[in-house]
């Protein structure tokens, strides 16, 4: 069963939500909150920060769903809001790391993962900085293009390509 952003939202719930129906908003939350939370958590690595993102996304969703025209699936629309909100946190908050690609990897040295942890996908992902995780997760799992990532980060495409290549090489090395 698909529990992510790919789930469809029925037209009736969508229409009720557009009219500000609280029960429809709750139904949308029940359906997509987990996907939002996991996307934010994978990028930010902190449950409290991820919950803040979920709150921000759903508050924004309730404010803007009236203008949702249905050009894209509802889940894709919500995923974009969750990605934007997560990256906003990364960009705003210094503790989530520097912008410079060199600095992104300097903070976490190669070979810092124990052999036992290397089998744990979560530990592998968390060995990267939030910025590198965001690019890796959005590109490899959520299907974002480098153009979209460049727009999200306000950087060039070569910026996300550079970080992604280094992240992939790093994690592949740890996985062998």
């Amino acid at each position: 069963m698909n529990s992510g952003f790919g789930q469809e939202l029925d037209a009736l719930t969508l229409e009720r939500a557009r009219r500000g129906d609280g029960r429809a908003h709750a139904a949308i939350y029940a359906r997509y909150a987990r996907a939002c939370y996991n996307l934010a958590l994978r990028i930010l690595g902190e449950p409290a920060a991820a919950e803040d993102v979920v709150q921000d996304v759903f508050l924004r969703m309730m404010d803007t769903i009236g203008g949702f025209r249905g050009d894209a699936p509802f889940g894709a629309w919500l995923k974009r809001m969750a990605a934007n909100a997560s990256i906003d946190v990364v960009r705003r908050n210094r503790r989530f790391g520097a912008e410079d690609p060199e600095a992104v990897f300097a903070a976490t040295a190669d070979g810092s993962i124990d052999r036992e942890d290397a089998v744990d996908a979560w530990a592998l992902l968390m060995s990267l900085s939030p910025r590198a995780r965001a690019i890796l997760v959005l590109h490899q799992l959520e299907g974002y293009t480098h153009k979209e990532l460049a727009d999200l980060f306000g950087q060039s495409e070569s910026y996300s390509k550079s970080i992604l290549a280094r992240a992939l090489k790093r994690l592949a090395g740890e996985s062998h």
């Binding site: 919950e51 979920v54 996908a121 490899q140 799992l141 994690l171 592949a172």
Partner: peptide
């Protein structure tokens, strides 16, 4: 790496 990322656990808020 993609194969490893698909093993990522999912958590509930």
């Amino acid at each position: 790496v993609s194969a490893r990322l698909r093993e990522l656990p999912e958590f509930d808020p």
